[in-house]
Simulated scan of single mutants.
Amino acid sequence: MYRYLCVFLMMIFVGCGGEALPKPKAYLSLQYENPTYERITVERPYSFEVSKKAQVKTLPKNWLKIRYPELKASVDITYRPVDNNLKELLIEAEKLVFEHTVKADNISNTEDYINEEQKVYGKMYFIYGNAASQVQFHVTDSTEHFLKASLFFYSKPNFDSVLPAVDYIKKDMIKMMETLKWKNMD
């Protein structure tokens, strides 16, 4: 009996060594190389610069898939000619962004993008939360061309896990938008 009492008292003294605190969440420290860019060389009614780390896959209808194999992601580029349907194209592009509100914590957009010299006008959206796409943009010259880009990962969305990759590819998408040229403008 004396032995049980000693063990019990030792457990009380050892177990009461202070306040129990939860462990902080651990985050991955992912670092990516600074990208270098080159203009795409595929025949399309548009061109822009992409990271040399990305792979460009051509698709029908002047569409592209910009793959990031190391990040298990892609930027899907869809192109549509404007044929007195600019309003419908803009509504459709915004509808595709806001379909993510079910899973998104927040959707924010940048100010309107305007490049008068190249006749590129558009908007970029950042979608926070476990949505299927975290970054999207659309651009147009308002008379002939309309282009939409959407970032997708090849895994179930977990925003906290993919955030470093999202930030990295988002910079590439901004570069695509800023360097976009329409073919008839070259």
Results as ranks from 00 to 15, higher is better:
residue 17 G to F: 00
residue 69 P to A: 10
residue 1 M to N: 07
residue 57 K to F: 07
residue 69 P to L: 10
residue 83 D to V: 09
residue 157 P to F: 09
residue 32 Y to C: 09
residue 83 D to H: 10
residue 111 E to S: 14
residue 32 Y to A: 07
residue 92 E to R: 09
residue 2 Y to W: 04
residue 116 E to K: 15
residue 165 A to W: 00
residue 87 K to F: 05
residue 105 D to Q: 13
residue 69 P to S: 08
residue 126 F to C: 00
residue 36 T to S: 14
residue 21 L to W: 03
residue 76 D to Q: 13
residue 126 F to V: 05
residue 148 K to C: 01
residue 34 N to Y: 09
residue 111 E to C: 02
residue 104 A to S: 13
residue 18 G to K: 00
residue 22 P to C: 02
residue 42 V to P: 02
residue 179 T to Y: 05
residue 164 P to Q: 04
residue 116 E to D: 14
residue 90 L to T: 12
residue 170 K to S: 12
residue 153 F to G: 13
residue 47 S to T: 11
residue 40 I to E: 09
residue 105 D to K: 13
residue 154 Y to I: 00
residue 111 E to P: 08
residue 77 I to H: 08
residue 54 A to R: 05
residue 135 V to L: 01
residue 64 L to C: 02
residue 48 F to N: 03
residue 6 C to R: 09
residue 59 L to H: 08
residue 157 P to D: 08
residue 96 L to Y: 08
residue 122 G to K: 06
residue 54 A to I: 03
residue 154 Y to C: 01
residue 59 L to C: 09
residue 157 P to N: 02
residue 144 E to L: 10
residue 15 G to W: 04
residue 85 N to M: 06
residue 132 A to Y: 03
residue 62 N to W: 03
residue 17 G to C: 00
residue 44 R to G: 02
residue 100 H to M: 11
residue 45 P to M: 02
residue 51 S to K: 01
residue 45 P to W: 06
residue 71 L to M: 15
residue 162 V to F: 01
residue 15 G to T: 06
residue 116 E to V: 03
residue 56 V to C: 09
residue 156 K to T: 15
residue 134 Q to L: 00
residue 115 N to A: 10
residue 34 N to W: 03
residue 144 E to T: 13
residue 173 M to P: 04
residue 20 A to L: 08
residue 100 H to F: 12
residue 66 I to V: 15
residue 149 A to Y: 06
